[in-house]
Design a protein around this nucleic acid. Sequence first.
DNA 1: TTCCAGTTTTAGACATATTCTAAAATCAAA
DNA 2: TTTGATTTTAGAATATGTCTAAAACTGGAA
Lengths: 140, 140
Amino acid sequence: MTDHERLSGFLQDHGIQPSAQRVAIARFVLHTDRHPTADEVLAEVRRDFPMVSRATVYNTIRLFMEKGLLRIHQLEGGVAVCDANTARHHHFIDEDTGEIVDVPWDAVDVGRLDELAGLSVDSWMVVMRGRRRREPPSRD
Amino acid sequence: MTDHERLSGFLQDHGIQPSAQRVAIARFVLHTDRHPTADEVLAEVRRDFPMVSRATVYNTIRLFMEKGLLRIHQLEGGVAVCDANTARHHHFIDEDTGEIVDVPWDAVDVGRLDELAGLSVDSWMVVMRGRRRREPPSRD
DNA sequence: TTCCAGTTTTAGACATATTCTAAAATCAAA
DNA sequence: TTTGATTTTAGAATATGTCTAAAACTGGAA
Ligand SMILES: [Mn+2]
Ligand SMILES: [Mn+2]
Ligand SMILES: [Zn+2]
Ligand SMILES: [Zn+2]
């Protein structure tokens, strides 16, 4: 079974009529741990599929979001980014590079959100800022 | 002492040359617990000062930010909002109204940010989403 | 006071991100 | 094959924010 066939079936399983454009976009945006902007998706998809239009990329990203295949965040800079990680998690933003890094849900403790008077909290996320740290050399 | 004189001195104390426009913008944006967008600031300031320009509002908001009088957040919807609360705090977004509500720093526990491998966290904020809850009637 | 150099404001152009429109292309089903 | 619905497309439109260069203003020096 080809990669295209597998992705095609995956889209169908989620109620999305597959098309060549949608499969090409899915291949890039649903299998990355980066957080690409629509323009980055467009540029990447055009490498293999040069005639794809900007409108299709925006339409398809929104469709994938509506079908629950990705999330869209506005974390900074007036640009929306796609997030293929649909499980709950937190985000770290490298202030030098702008890179957005996923932080596992269980790696951070958040408490007492149920005690906020007058606010019914349905979901939450910790947004951290800082710099990536060089790992200290491991002495195995 | 008039309100204008007080604000004027406040701006001077922070290294900002006061002008009629800057005082009018400061009056609205530095004394609110809402989180207005630049366009909301423009509309509000124009009620008293109809000839103020959009460029001046953007320039002044940025100047106030550079001088530490407010912060700017990108919380959702591709619009930047002004935050006159410069102390550390968290944010709750009402998903029905879009309203942004400040949550005191000490009302939420956040832990283990220092244990994230490879990430040096300088600052963080919890972004919560949900609905405002009607207060239950207090039986005093 | 008047003058002047620096600062501030302004309208509008420009830039960027996203959505909308309406026609063309494609597709699925009969 | 026909056909009606869906999808894609180029480009226009909209939304948010920045830049430019000229005009207006300001605070001291003369
Ligand atoms: Mn804040
Ligand atoms: Mn935008
Ligand atoms: Zn993520
Ligand atoms: Zn706030």
